[in-house]
């Protein structure tokens, strides 16, 4: 999947991936996609939950040998 920015959270545990993703997403424009690399399994449940709370869109989670690639599209202000 194509992303506008990538955030490396390999080796980090909750709440760091979510906290850093929230911070990173603020730097992006609405509609842009953030790719989060993470290997804490909690991210599979946490990122969908975080997107649900914040109104940002979860595009998908890819599972690979090094961990997970999570894609989040930043919502427009009115969609949140």
């Amino acid at each position: 999947m194509k992303a506008d920015a990538t955030l490396d959270c390999i080796g980090l545990y909750c709440p760091l991936p979510i906290a850093q993703a929230a911070k990173k997403l603020r730097e992006l424009e609405a509609g842009q996609v953030l790719e989060v690399l993470a290997d804490d399994e909690g991210i599979k449940e946490d990122m969908p939950a975080w997107c649900h709370m914040t109104g940002n869109e979860l595009l998908g989670i890819e599972e690979g040998p090094e961990g997970y690639k999570v894609y989040v599209r930043k919502a427009k202000e009115r969609d949140r």
């Binding site: 709440p15 979510i18 906290a19 929230a22 709370m53 914040t54 949140r80």
Partner: peptide, 12 residues
């Protein structure tokens, strides 16, 4: 603090 940071990250 873990919970506080998680909540703040979700805009709370």
């Amino acid at each position: 603090f873990n919970i506080a940071i998680g909540a703040a990250s979700a805009g709370m």
